[in-house]
Design a protein around this nucleic acid. Structure first.
Length: 581
RNA sequence: CGGGGUGUAGCGCAGUGGCUAGCGCGCUACGUUCGGGACGUAGAGGCCGGUGGUUCGAAUCCACUCACCCCGACCA
C-alpha cells in the first residue's frame, strides 16, 4: 500500500476526547472513526488488523474441531421471548419493527438461533459432539459506550457454541476451547489471565473470563499470592475475615470467630447515627461487630439485605441469589414505603419483605444492629435467635487483603479488560427450545451446550493497550496491518524514487506486506513520526545517502538503533526481524 | 437513568448583542528547502448542532430539542 493512496490521515495531536491509550492511538493513527456513541467505522489499517485477528481465531477454532457458519443479525423478537431473554437483556436489546409491524431485534448473541439450527439437524448421539462458530456483528445498546473499541454498541464477535451428549463430553470441549483461547491471545501478543467468572444473563454452570491486566480495564480481577486462584471480583470468594480485636484489646481476632455467651437484646439510643462507621465509633466496637442493612429493588420488589458491617455487598452474587433480571438500590421513598428506617434498620422483627443475608452474620455473636426505629439500635443481636432470613448465601464482595478460600494466601486485585468469555451453558436452551437427541439406549435427552465468545475489536484495542510506547502503537507482528513500513526520503531525487518503487515491488513479490511512504514532499521527521505512530514491526528507510552505499536501513519498531543491510538482502533481513518479534 | 461538561472550516480552538465570523494545524498552486513534525507568496474551505422566540440587529440573550464526551449501574 502506498501512503499517498491511503484514506486515513494520522493526527498530529492527541484527540481530546480519547483518554484511554488504545482509543487515543487508534484515532491518531487513523485506524477508526466514530459514527455515533459506541459505533465506529474501521478504516483500512484497522480492518486489515482485524482480519488478521479473525484469521488467527479461525485457525484456532478450526484446530479445535469448529465449523464456521453465519447466522442472521436480524431476528424475530418472539425467539427472545421464548427463552425469557428479552427481559434478561432488557434495554440492551436493540429492537425495531419490520414493515408489517412485526417486532424484530438486532441480535446481541446467538444461542437461540444456533439452538434451532441444531434442533432441526441433530437427532442422534451419533451427530454429537458439534462445535459451531461464526464471526459476526453483534448489537447491544449499552448504557454507556466508552474508551474507543473497548466498549461499543455494534461490534464483531467470534461466538462459538458446543453441543455435547453429556457433561463429561462438554468438559472435554470446554477444556479444548480454553486452550484454543490461550493460543489466540498468545498469538495476538496478549498475556491474559483466565479467571473464574459469573455467567451473567446467559446462565449456566462453569464460566471463565480471559482478561488483559490493564489499569484502564473495567473489571476487577482477584488473584491469590499463594496459589493459582484467579477470579473476577464479581465471582471471587474469600474467607470471612475474623472479627477484629476490640479497641481495648478484649476478645476477638486471630482468625477465629469470637465466641461469646449470647446476650439479651437491648435498645440503645443512638441519636444522629446513620452509618456503620458512625455506629461502630459511637458504640466503641469494630465494624465487624455490627450488621449492615441495605435495600434493593429486584424486578420491582423491595429486598432487605443484611451482611456484617465490615463487608460490602456483591451485587452480582445478590442478583444470582435472587434470580432476578433487574437489581438496583432502592430509592428513599421505596425504602419508606416498605416500612424500613434507613440508618437504623435490621432484620429483627421485619416481616413481609424478602430477606437475604450473607453467612458472615453467623461469624460472630451479639451484633449491634438497627432497631427499626429512628435513632435507636439494638445490642446483643444473634442469628438465628433474633431474626430469620429467606436466603442465606454468600453475597459478600471479595476485596484485596482478604484471605484465599483455597489456600489461605492473601488476595490481591488488578484491573483488566475482558477479551474473551467461555461458559458451560448446560441444557437451558436445548430444553426451552426442544433441542433433543436420542442416546444409544433410545432415550430422548436435551443436548448439553457451551458457548464461547471473543470480541474481535476489543481484542485489537486490548492489544494496542498492551503494546505501545510514548511514540505510538507497537503492533505484535501477527496482527500488524502490514509487516514493513518503507520510508522513502527525498523522493524528488529520481534515483531514490525509482529504487523505492522497485524495493516496494520486491517486498510485495516476496509476500511481505508493505506500507510505502511515498509522499513526495513530506519532511523526514513527519514520515518517521507517522511510522512510529502506526507502529508496524519493521521500518525500512531508503534515501540518497543509503542509496549511494547501496544499502537500506532496517529497524524493528522497538530497536534502539537501525542497522543497514545491502539492498539485495532486504527481504531476508525483514524476514529475520519478523521471526524474532 | 442520575451527576458533570461540550457542540463555530477536515482536525484542534478563540469569539458575552453591532461592519464581510477569526486563529493554529491540515488542504490547493508556485518557489525555496530536504534524515526526527521546514519556509515564503497566493488561495480554497462555514446551515456558528437544530427549532422557536426576544431584538432595528443573534454564533452571542431566552425556551425547547438533538448529538457527543467524562464519572456511576451492564458486557466481548
Amino acid at each position: 500500500m502506498k501512503f499517498t493512496r491511503m484514506v486515513s490521515k494520522t493526527l498530529r495531536f492527541d484527540p481530546p476526547e480519547a483518554e484511554t491509550t488504545s482509543h487515543r492511538l487508534m484515532l491518531r493513527a487513523g485506524l477508526i472513526q466514530q459514527v455515533a456513541a459506541g459505533v465506529y467505522s474501521y478504516l483500512p489499517l484497522a480492518w486489515r488488523s482485524l482480519r488478521k485477528i479473525e484469521n488467527i481465531i479461525r485457525e484456532e477454532m478450526d484446530a479445535a474441531g469448529g465449523q464456521e457458519l453465519m447466522l442472521p443479525a436480524l431476528q424475530p423478537l418472539e425467539l427472545w421471548e421464548q427463552t425469557g431473554r428479552r427481559a434478561a437483556f432488557g434495554d440492551n436489546l436493540f429492537s425495531l419493527q419490520d414493515r408489517r409491524g412485526r417486532p424484530m431485534v438486532m441480535a446481541p448473541t446467538h444461542e437461540e438461533v444456533i439452538t434451532n439450527v441444531v434442533k432441526s439437524n441433530v437427532q442422534s448421539y451419533r451427530d454429537l459432539p458439534l462445535l459451531l462458530y461464526q464471526i459476526q456483528t453483534k448489537f447491544r445498546d449499552e448504557p454507556r459506550p466508552r474508551a474507543g473499541l473497548i466498549r461499543v454498541r455494534e461490534f464483531d464477535m467470534k461466538d462459538a457454541y458446543s453441543f455435547n451428549a453429556d457433561d463429561a463430553s462438554l468438559d472435554d470441549t470446554y477444556r479444548d476451547m480454553a486452550q484454543a483461547y490461550r493460543n489466540v491471545f498468545r498469538r495476538c501478543g496478549l498475556p491474559v489471565l483466565m479467571a473464574e467468572a459469573d455467567s451473567g444473563a446467559i446462565g449456566g454452570k462453569d464460566s471463565h473470563e480471559f482478561l488483559l491486566p490493564t489499569e484502564t480495564g473495567e473489571d476487577t480481577v482477584i488473584t491469590c499470592s499463594g496459589c493459582d486462584y484467579v477470579a473476577n471480583a464479581e465471582k471471587a470468594v474469600s474467607v470471612i475475615p475474623p472479627i477484629l480485636p476490640l479497641p481495648q484489646g478484649e476478645g476477638g481476632g486471630g482468625g477465629v470467630p469470637v465466641v461469646e455467651e449470647e446476650q439479651p437484646l437491648a435498645e440503645v439510643a443512638t441519636p444522629g447515627v446513620k452509618t456503620i462507621a458512625g455506629l461502630a465509633e459511637f458504640m466503641g466496637v469494630p465494624e465487624s461487630k455490627t450488621l449492615k442493612a441495605v435495600f434493593y429493588m429486584a424486578d420491582g420488589e423491595p429486598v432487605f439485605v443484611t451482611i456484617r458491617g465490615d463487608l460490602e455487598v456483591n451485587e452480582v452474587k445478590l442478583k444470582n441469589a435472587l434470580h432476578c433480571d433487574d437489581l438496583r438500590f432502592a430509592e428513599d421513598d421505596e425504602v419508606r414505603a416498605a416500612g424500613l428506617v434507613a440508618g437504623s434498620a435490621s432484620a429483627v422483627g421485619i416481616t413481609g419483605i424478602r430477606k437475604v443475608a450473607d453467612p458472615s452474620i453467623e461469624s460472630g455473636s451479639n451484633f449491634v444492629v438497627g432497631a427499626n426505629k429512628p435513632d435507636t439500635h439494638l445490642t446483643g443481636a444473634n442469628y438465628p435467635r433474633d431474626f430469620e432470613v429467606d436466603i442465606l448465601t454468600d453475597i459478600a464482595l471479595t476485596q484485596p487483603g482478604q484471605l484465599c478460600a483455597r489456600c489461605g494466601g492473601t488476595l490481591q486485585s488488578t484491573r483488566g479488560v475482558e477479551v474473551g468469555h467461555i461458559f458451560k451453558l448446560g441444557t437451558f436452551f436445548s430444553e426451552t427450545l426442544g433441542a433433543n437427541y436420542l442416546d444409544a439406549e433410545g432415550r430422548n435427552l436435551p443436548i448439553t451446550m457451551g458457548c464461547y465468545g471473543i470480541g474481535v475489536g476489543r481484542l485489537l484495542a486490548a492489544a494496542i493497550e498492551q503494546n505501545n510506547d510514548d511514540r505510538g502503537i507497537v503492533f505484535p507482528h501477527p496482527i500488524a496491518p502490514y509487516q514493513a513500513h518503507l520510508v522513502g526520503l527525498n523522493l524528488s531525487n529520481e534515483g531514490v524514487a525509482a529504487a523505492g518503487e522497485s524495493l516496494y515491488d520486491e517486498l510485495n513479490a516476496a509476500g511481505i506486506e508493505t506500507l510505502y511512504d511515498d509522499r513526495p514532499d513530506a519532511a523526514a521527521g513527519v514520515k518517521f513520526n507517522d511510522a512510529d505512530l502506526i507502529g508496524l514491526p519493521v521500518r525500512l528507510v531508503i534515501s540518497p545517502r543509503n542509496l549511494n552505499n547501496s544499502v537500506v536501513e532496517v529497524r524493528g519498531r522497538q530497536d534502539e538503533e537501525a542497522t543497514t543491510v545491502p539492498l539485495s538482502d532486504v527481504v531476508e533481513a525483514v524476514r529475520a526481524r519478523l521471526m524474532n518479534n
